[in-house]
Amino acid sequence: MTMVRRESLAEQAAELLLARIRDGEWEVGEKLPGETKLAPQLGVGRSTAREAIRTLAGRGILTTRQGAGVFVTAADIPESWDEILQRADIVAVLEARTAIEVEAAALAAERRTSVELKKIRGALDERERHRTHLDEHVETDMAFHRSIVAAAHSPILLDLFDSFAPRSRQAMIEMLRHRSHHGGNTDHSIHERVYQAIASRDIEAAAALARAHLHALRELLS
């Protein structure tokens, strides 16, 4: 029987238990043995086994159901959101932006205040002033789109946008470098039209224009 080392005993027990789950000893949805049986298998006492279970529960591997026992909920530690985003390719990034920003544009057209509309206008003007320098262009473009999401008054959409922003920024820089040009009149025009739709409270036009803009970016990759 494999025994754990004395140092960091609960953590070592958790790693051993995780290795056995990875090896398929217990499938997802299956119940673990009780602490009385599990602790000797790990070479530790019941209190250490209990701590190891808590450790893996905190990592999303196990869950404790009151009165039923401990069950396997995942075969490995789930990837963090940052890890998933870093692996995403540019097309996946644009698809996610579409899911967030089309709905945000529609909600902004419906819910924006006059103060928020001024912020969107200011962000658009700032974007126009930074057409030529790539990094500044991307930064001001992101700021413009964020101002729209903020005006949607949807905290979840804004949190999604902010958590997605570093990977989105990276993807846009990669794509625009590949194109070797950016910030043309056509590109600025569609952003202006998105703003005008939001200013006019035209919900359908705001959503359609946001979708058309992101679709056009995808087409540039083909």
Rank of each mutant, 00 (worst) to 15 (best):
1 M>K: 14
2 T>V: 15
3 M>D: 11
5 R>S: 13
5 R>T: 08
8 S>L: 12
12 Q>Y: 08
12 Q>D: 13
14 A>L: 10
15 E>N: 12
15 E>V: 12
15 E>F: 08
16 L>E: 12
19 A>L: 08
20 R>H: 10
25 E>I: 04
25 E>T: 03
27 E>H: 11
27 E>I: 10
28 V>Q: 05
28 V>D: 04
29 G>T: 12
31 K>A: 14
32 L>V: 11
33 P>E: 13
33 P>R: 11
34 G>T: 06
35 E>Q: 13
37 K>R: 15
41 Q>G: 09
42 L>G: 01
42 L>M: 05
43 G>H: 05
44 V>C: 08
49 A>L: 09
52 A>R: 07
52 A>D: 08
53 I>T: 14
54 R>H: 13
54 R>I: 12
54 R>V: 14
55 T>F: 04
56 L>H: 05
58 G>T: 08
59 R>V: 00
62 L>A: 07
63 T>V: 13
68 A>T: 11
68 A>R: 13
72 V>R: 08
76 D>W: 05
76 D>H: 08
77 I>W: 12
77 I>N: 12
78 P>H: 03
80 S>P: 08
81 W>N: 07
82 D>W: 03
82 D>E: 15
83 E>K: 09
90 I>L: 05
92 A>M: 07
92 A>S: 14
93 V>L: 00
94 L>W: 01
96 A>D: 07
101 E>L: 03
101 E>Y: 01
102 V>W: 06
103 E>C: 10
104 A>G: 10
105 A>R: 04
105 A>L: 07
106 A>Y: 01
107 L>K: 14
107 L>S: 05
110 E>G: 01
112 R>S: 15
112 R>P: 02
113 T>Y: 03
114 S>M: 08
117 L>I: 06
120 I>L: 09
124 L>H: 10
124 L>T: 05
125 D>S: 09
126 E>N: 14
128 E>Y: 13
131 R>N: 03
131 R>V: 01
132 T>H: 08
134 L>R: 08
134 L>I: 05
141 D>R: 02
144 F>W: 12
145 H>W: 04
145 H>Q: 10
146 R>E: 15
147 S>W: 00
149 V>C: 01
150 A>H: 03
151 A>E: 05
155 P>G: 00
157 L>A: 07
161 F>D: 05
163 S>C: 07
164 F>G: 00
168 S>V: 06
169 R>C: 03
171 A>P: 07
173 I>L: 14
173 I>D: 04
173 I>R: 14
174 E>T: 10
176 L>N: 00
177 R>V: 02
177 R>A: 02
178 H>V: 06
179 R>N: 11
180 S>A: 14
181 H>D: 06
181 H>Y: 09
182 H>V: 08
182 H>E: 03
185 N>A: 15
185 N>Y: 06
186 T>K: 11
188 H>V: 14
189 S>I: 01
190 I>M: 09
190 I>D: 10
191 H>N: 14
193 R>V: 02
194 V>M: 15
194 V>A: 13
196 Q>Y: 08
197 A>H: 06
199 A>T: 06
200 S>C: 11
201 R>D: 09
202 D>Y: 06
203 I>Q: 15
209 L>A: 01
210 A>V: 01
213 H>P: 01
219 E>A: 12
219 E>V: 12
221 L>Y: 04
